[in-house]
């Protein structure tokens, strides 16, 4: 294992991958990338296929700067400005970098930005490189001076990805639970974290607690204070608060895009419709290989007309 790159500056960021599946029964949250679709696109750009074992940096705020020691492919996906040795690039493309270059990623929000590096192998705990920000049982501490190691030269060529835009508008679609009517809101986002997103200002009937039961990522708890908490990937695994519903899988990435102060409404969705929405979201996520964009933005090769790198 050799050092592919060294972190020279980093703000709010952790190492994530597809998460620690199957361990919730012993109290270990799934963790992993908060915005699954952006993350999977980033893995595809550096590996040639979606790969939940590929580690990526999840940047939630601020910026990150890396000094590359070896040539490889870097992908940045999400709302960010990328510069390679001062030359600006949009996010959403795989970039071939040479040795001794400096890559700066500026988070522009909303939501997480993913940086994947071909060949990077982060240490695994219980089969995953994901950082659990709540229990702290695992994860690489990202700070200035840390080397990202791996096997060099295993990258694939650069590509661009297509997504029908981060659909930022519209209500969050929720599969209702129990016989509690869904408190549609509008709600105001009070705080966001990988463990949970808190919302206030709507009317929820939270009648006491019930025997603690298992919960899932996206479950919406009604706290006695009247606020709603949407559980995130590092969130609690059991809880006694009433659950008003569970965010449908297709809209889970949008939860990570919510920002404090933002208003959001909830919209009930039945299970067959939620399944359909998930299938559509999976189909729309597409990456085109290889090297479809020139440095001047020109397209080469057999690139469909509708392909464009995301902002």
């Amino acid at each position: 294992m050799t050092a592919i790159a060294t972190v020279t500056h980093v703000d709010l960021a952790t190492v994530q991958d597809g998460g620690r599946r199957g361990l919730a029964g012993i109290g270990v949250p799934i963790s992993g990338a908060w915005h699954r679709s952006r993350y999977l696109v980033a893995t595809n750009l550096v590996r040639g296929a979606e790969d939940p074992r590929q580690p990526a940096v999840e940047l939630l705020a601020g910026s990150m700067e890396l000094h590359f020691h070896l040539p490889t492919t870097v992908a940045v996906v999400g709302p960010a400005q990328v510069t390679v040795d001062g030359l600006p690039f949009g996010a959403g493309v795989g970039l071939a970098v040479t040795a001794d270059v400096r890559v700066v990623v500026d988070h522009r929000g909303p939501g997480p930005v993913y940086l994947a590096i071909a060949g990077w192998e982060a240490p695994l705990v219980l089969g995953s490189a994901a950082t659990d920000t709540f229990s702290g049982i695992a994860g690489t501490s990202l700070r200035s001076g840390v080397a990202l190691t791996g096997v060099a030269g295993s990258g694939c060529s650069a590509g661009a990805f297509l997504r029908q835009g981060d659909d930022a508008g519209g209500p969050l679609r929720v599969v209702p639970c129990e016989d509690v009517p869904l408190p549609v809101g509008p709600w105001r986002v009070q705080s966001t974290a990988r463990s949970g997103t808190r919302m206030v200002g709507g009317a929820a009937s939270s009648s006491g607690s019930r025997p603690s039961r298992p919960v899932v990522v996206g479950a919406i708890q009604a706290a006695p204070s009247g606020e709603l908490i949407i559980l995130g990937p590092d969130g609690g695994l059991t809880g006694g608060y009433p659950i008003v519903g569970v965010v449908c899988s297709a809209d889970l990435p949008r939860v990570s895009e919510l920002e404090p102060g933002e208003e959001i409404s909830l919209q009930p969705m039945d299970v067959p419709a939620a399944m359909q929405a998930f299938a559509v979201a999976e189909r729309e996520r597409r990456v085109v290989h290889p090297g479809v964009l020139g440095r001047d933005g020109s397209r080469r090769g057999s690139v469909p007309d509708d392909v464009a790198p995301a902002k």
Binding site: I26, G27, S212, P214, G236, T238
Partner: peptide, 11 residues
């Protein structure tokens, strides 16, 4: 009964 709250925490 169940585990949760933290890794390995048994109720």
């Amino acid at each position: 009964a169940m585990l949760g709250f933290a890794p390995g925490f048994g109720y």
